[in-house]
Write a protein that binds this DNA or RNA. Structure first.
Length: 767
DNA sequence: CTCGGCAGAATTTTT
DNA sequence: TTCTGCCGAG
């Protein structure tokens, strides 16, 4: 009944060319409150659509409303909609919000999920076409790395010179680009260990197959291969999906792009949503190009821009827009807001070192909290994880509650992975990788020699390790000690496997952990972390209760590497800029805006201007997380790998429009020169011509002003000013000196005061 | 087999 | 500086 009352008016009103103004009164409630562009993005169902959704423009709302609309109007069944996100969180949120919009829970949206979850689903259905069984295990990074290491060792390659890590990056890179071993070009395949790259990739893939396992990359790569090789299967999917939707399109890589192109096929009801200005994962294979060329890929695509921002103040938007304008490769959007009140200016503050920076952030946060703001509405966003330490120490000292978002994830902790490995072997006795992980955890006297023997036996008899262990334990090939250890372990697993059929998985897990001696070993461990580990294991067992079966739990774990943390305590948020994407906070602290750190020197060295632009987008993401206020800061000195380094303010600071910022310098800032009074002056008259003149005059005597310094750093990093031998330079910490040698971006400088030192060229300017 | 000491490396990481 | 991973001694 409800279906019919919806379908007709909507078809009449929106299916054709009827202008939006003549909408019938009977408009579904979920469309109310959308602005014109959002509405258009929801209603443009036919044909390809690109929604360019700037930060804070209501993207998620549009996306969910669009899906709800398709469902409510019965244009497609839930099972005929493909909706892809990057994170489980986004998928979950989408499900919940659609449910809220159309009432009740959303049943049957089996194809709403992450690229990987959907890929796994497809691969399980056609596993045999990829040389796998449908119950294949999904390997995470850790497993993957260990496997690659084995392959490298088996090839007698010196793992020192050719680390598995590097090979993993290569393989991932190929998989991200949709390349099977045979597709890797001759020259690319030459990489690694004197031209063995492609061979190793091939061997690794073969090992995966023999272990009945797939890594994350395979979850996309294998379906692509299946689609390409089996037209009838591809056809089935193309017919099934009447509407397709992809979130965060700017983050798709080549493989995901190919996968989508195949699946969307002739049916072009494909809607992609993204923001090129928020593309911050190019280093992980994402191709901003995908979004930039969407209109060419899908001719006639409708492009809808969401530019009206509902999140931030005009001052914040002004600062963010000013910054991102410096990027050349962008589709171009300008965020605007109806808000009259400019809001607080972005505060930019220079400090002496990271410790002072942390002190400042903590005291600002406490100030705000005293005024009634919640810690949970504030976030500190750092470029790199190592910056967190300073803040954590300060917060602990002050007793400020904080939470690290996205840090080492629950399922990546060693004890959790060990427990899972046990369970994996219980669930699937042939999971060799898992078995190997726990064969000597806790220590049971099985070392390299025994494990080697076990491997040999397994290979000779063509058996999984667990079964080989059983046989070897019964034979007399090994020393008595190792033999009984092996046989005990095999017996335990046989016992647990029996129990698995009888007991709920949580109980089973408890038994396994106790009987294996794992918990006992932890209890005996006197290190300070042991207690927390036991706590984590308890948490793991608890979380298992919610699942239907052990298998369901394990599938969940391999794809969804996270656990809900439902603590409602009021804590300050601390995370990397990457982890902050998609989140918003009243107050945002952006520390560490220094040349070399942010933008990161390494990114600029490796990726040149493209790298710099990505760093700038990262800054843009950081700025646009804030609703009300932003505190940017930079330290003159910072300890990097235990060495003190001096740094100049980030060029990004110079790119923030002066109208929207408030500069404050601290006592002791750039300590050696500038008294307290001068610094006060610096703070209030940062941009006045008079101040600049004064700085210029002083530069003769004491060194360049901060503004000049920033300008010079920018010039040097963009190649305008490189250093030559004999050149006179100024270093912020050590003063004047003369360049005596240049090696890449490092300089050997004879300093007038400090003697000869090696410094990064980013830290000195021409004098 | 296990533990201790030492060399070498140290961004970002949705799955 | 701090962590990790490897090698040699017990």
């Amino acid at each position: 009944m409800a279906a019919n009352s919806y379908i007709d008016p909507l078809d009449a009103a929106f299916g054709g060319e009827t202008p939006a103004e003549r909408r019938p009164a009977a408009e579904p409630a979920y469309l109310r409150g959308l602005n014109a562009e959002q509405r258009e993005a929801v209603l443009a169902l036919d044909g390809p659509v690109l929604v360019l959704a700037g930060a804070g423009t209501g993207k998620t709302r549009v996306l969910t409303t669009r899906l709800a609309h398709i469902l409510a109007t019965r244009r497609a069944w839930p099972s005929q909609i493909l909706a892809v996100t990057f994170t489980n969180k986004a998928a979950r949120e989408m499900k919940e919000r659609i449910g809220a919009l159309i009432g009740g829970t959303v049943e049957g949206m089996q194809w709403l999920g992450t690229f990987h979850a959907i890929g796994a689903r497809i691969l399980r259905r056609h596993a045999e076409l990829a040389g796998l069984k449908s119950n294949f295990t999904i390997l995470d990074q850790d497993d993957q790395l260990r496997l690659i290491k084995q392959v490298i060792e088996a090839e007698n390659i010196d793992e020192k010179r050719w680390p598995a890590r590097t090979m993993a990056v290569l393989i991932d890179g190929w998989k991200n680009r949709g390349l099977l071993p045979k597709d890797v070009s001759e020259s690319d395949g030459q990489a690694f260990a004197f031209g063995k790259g492609r061979k190793l990739y091939e061997l690794y893939q073969a090992r995966l197959k023999s272990l009945n396992a797939a890594d994350f990359g395979d979850l996309l790569l294998e379906p692509i291969a299946i689609f390409k090789g089996n037209h009838e299967i591809l056809d089935e999917y193309q017919k099934r999906f009447r509407y397709m939707l992809v979130d965060e399109y700017q983050d798709t890589n080549v493989a995901q792009y190919l996968w989508l192109r195949l699946i969307s096929g002739a049916n072009k009801n494909l809607c992609v949503v993204g923001d090129d200005d928020q593309s911050i994962y190019a280093w992980r294979g994402a191709e901003v190009e995908n979004i930039l060329r969407f209109e060419r890929d899908y001719p006639g695509a409708k492009v809808i821009r969401l530019e009206r921002n509902y999140r931030s103040t005009p001052a914040i938007l002004g600062a963010a827009s000013g910054l991102i304008k410096a990027n050349a490769a962008r589709l171009g959007k300008t965020l605007w807001t109806e808000s009259e009140d400019q809001g607080e200016k972005v505060q930019v503050k220079g400090v002496w070192d990271a410790e002072e920076e942390a002190r400042n952030v903590a005291s600002e946060a406490e100030n705000l909290q005293r005024k009634g703001h919640k810690f949970a509405d504030m976030a500190i966003l750092v470029r790199a994880a190592f910056q967190m330490r300073e803040f954590e120490e300060r917060f602990i000292a002050l007793g400020v509650p904080y939470r690290v978002v996205g840090g080492p994830r629950f399922y990546e902790r060693a004890e959790i992975r060990d427990a899972l490995a046990y369970l994996r072997v219980v669930a699937q006795g042939d999971d060799d990788l898992a078995f190997e992980r726990i064969i000597n955890k806790p220590k049971r006297g099985l070392g390299d020699a025994s494990i080697q023997a076990l491997h040999n036996h397994a290979r000779a008899a063509d058996l999984p390790l667990l079964m080989a262990a059983e046989e070897l334990g019964a034979s007399d090939e090994l020393a008595p000690r190792a033999r009984s250890a092996l046989s005990d372990l095999a017996k335990s697993f046989a016992h647990w496997q029996q129990q698995a059929a009888l007991l709920p998985q949580a109980e089973l897990a408890e038994i396994v952990l106790d009987e294996s001696g794992y918990t006992d070993a932890l209890k005996a461990d006197k290190s300070p972390e042991a207690a927390g580990r036991l706590e984590n294991l308890k948490e793991l067992v608890r979380s298992m209760e919610e699942f239907e079966s052990l298998a369901a739990f394990l599938e969940h774990v391999s794809l969804v590497m996270e656990l809900e943390n439902n603590d409602s305590e009021d804590r300050l948020n601390l995370m990397t800029l990457h982890a902050a994407k998609g989140l918003e906070f009243e107050t945002v602290f952006l520390p560490g805006w220094e040349e070399g750190l942010f933008p990161s020197q390494r990114t600029m060295d490796e990726k040149g201007n493209a790298g710099l632009e990505e760093e700038r987008r990262l800054a843009y993401v950081g700025l646009t997380r804030a609703k009300k206020r932003i505190f940017v800061s930079f330290a003159a000195n910072r300890r990097v790998h235990g060495q003190w380094q001096s740094a100049l303010p980030s060029r990004f600071i110079g790119e923030l429009p002066e109208a929207h910022i408030d500069s404050v310098a601290n006592e002791g800032f750039y300590g050696n020169y500038g008294s307290f009074r001068e610094n006060q002056e610096f703070g209030s008259t940062y941009s006045s011509p008079g101040w600049r003149r004064a700085q210029e005059a002083r530069a003769q005597a004491r060194g360049p002003s901060i503004i000049e310094a920033t300008a010079k750093v920018v010039a040097s990093a963009t190649g305008v000013a490189k250093f030559g031998n004999g050149e006179r330079v100024f270093h912020q910490k050590f003063g004047y000196g003369r360049v005596v040698a240049v090696e890449g971006n490092k300089l050997l400088v004879d300093l007038e005061k400090a003697g000869s030192k090696r410094v990064m060229d980013g830290f000195v300017v021409k004098a």
